[in-house]
Amino acid sequence: MAESAQLTGAGDPAAPAARRRATILDVAAAAGVSRQTVTRAINDMPGISADTKKRVLDAAGALSYRPSRFGRGLVTGGDRQLGLVVNDLRNPYSPELAAAVVRRAADEGWSVSLVDIGLAGAADRLLRSLHAQADVVVGYLGTWASAWESRFGATPLVLLDAGEDIAHAGVDLDPIAAIDDLAAHLVALGTRRPVVLDASEPPMPSRRGIAMVEAFERRGLSPEVVHASVPTPEHASAVAAQVIRRTTRPDAILAFNDLMALGVLSACRHAGLDVPGDIRVAGVDGLTVGTLVAPTLTTLAVDFDEVARHALELAVAFGEGDGDVGPHRVVPHRLVLRESA
Rank of each mutant, 00 (worst) to 15 (best):
V187P: 10
L189H: 15
G190H: 08
G190W: 04
G190P: 10
R192V: 12
R193L: 12
R193F: 12
R193G: 04
L197R: 00
A199H: 01
S200C: 10
P203E: 03
P205T: 05
P205C: 03
P205F: 01
P205R: 03
R207G: 13
R207K: 14
R207Y: 14
I210K: 14
I210W: 13
M212P: 10
V213G: 04
A215L: 02
F216A: 02
E217A: 12
E217M: 12
R219M: 09
S229R: 15
S229E: 15
T232V: 09
H235P: 12
A236G: 10
V239F: 05
R245G: 13
R246M: 11
T248A: 15
D251A: 07
D251W: 08
N257M: 00
N257R: 00
D258M: 00
D258K: 00
L259W: 09
A261G: 05
G263N: 04
G263L: 09
L265A: 04
L265V: 04
L265C: 03
L265E: 01
R269P: 12
H270S: 15
L273M: 10
P276F: 10
P276C: 09
D278T: 11
D278E: 10
I279Y: 03
V281I: 11
V281T: 06
A282Y: 02
G283V: 00
D285M: 01
D285P: 01
D285Y: 03
G286V: 00
L287R: 02
L287Q: 01
G290M: 05
G290K: 07
T291I: 13
P295N: 10
P295A: 06
P295M: 09
P295V: 06
L297F: 03
T299W: 02
T299C: 04
T299E: 03
T299P: 01
L300E: 01
L300A: 01
L300C: 05
F304W: 08
F304H: 06
A308E: 04
H310N: 11
L314G: 08
L314P: 05
A315M: 07
A315C: 05
V316E: 15
A317D: 09
F318Q: 13
G319I: 10
